[in-house]
Design a protein around this nucleic acid. Sequence first.
DNA 1: GCGACAG
DNA 2: ATCTTGTCGC
Length: 273
Amino acid sequence: MDGEGASSESSSGNQLENWTEEQDQLKKKLIVYDDFTWKLSSSMEFPQGSEMLKYIGGVDMSFSKEDSSVACACLVVLELPSLRVVHHEFSLLRLHVPYVPGFLAFREAPVLLQLLQKMRDDQHPFYPQVLMVDGNGILHPRGFGLACHLGVLAHLPTIGVGKNLHHVDGLNQSEVRRSLQLKENEHEQVITLVGNSGFTWGVGFRPTLSSLKPIYVSVGHRISLDSAVKIVKITCKYRVPEPIRQADMRSRAYLQKHQTESFKRTAINGSEH
DNA sequence: GCGACAG
DNA sequence: ATCTTGTCGC
């Protein structure tokens, strides 16, 4: 046979190559500056003519402990400045794509896009002006994490929020925490994440006084890091920004409810036969 | 070679 | 991601 011969591992190897290629292609469309018409309510100006930021979206997914392929995706929309949830929707599904570090989007983006698409198709009045994603933006091995991926495909401004640091360009958790320790006396809760290369990947941020563990904010799409951080700040009642926290809690609850009801059905069917 | 590795 | 209860403190 020929030299192109596939070894047992080359199919997965090719998949990663394809995924990498797709990320590199989509990355060409990435916009990393403010590309929206609304204004932040925190600004000192009286933005009489301009639209305000009012609807912030958040997305997250939860997984079943019994069957890790069963998942619930949730999209929430919060209203500013009240931070009240004005809309939520869910999708219960089975996932066949595994989680591979650096390729989270190929697992989670399709269903999250579906949820956004549904709101858009319905011409829903609360369609989000900006979306917070539970996963990184450009803070990613190839500068194109889930938040970027979703943003480009949905053509929506997005912000990446990680609860753990993805080690990239020499960045590491303990360094970040150490820097925050040093800065906490100056009432500084934000530290810029500059890698060995000199590139700014995002920020480490301590939302509350009590949270030792920072969250990691990075640009997703159509927004600057400064604006992203401002928005994260105004949505943090607790460590995790409300849009993501609500999507997290609600997806988890939805999954639990589905599982108990699915259990009841099998229990009834089982006892009646 | 070994370890690290968003969710 | 998920498991897992109470507990210490504002």
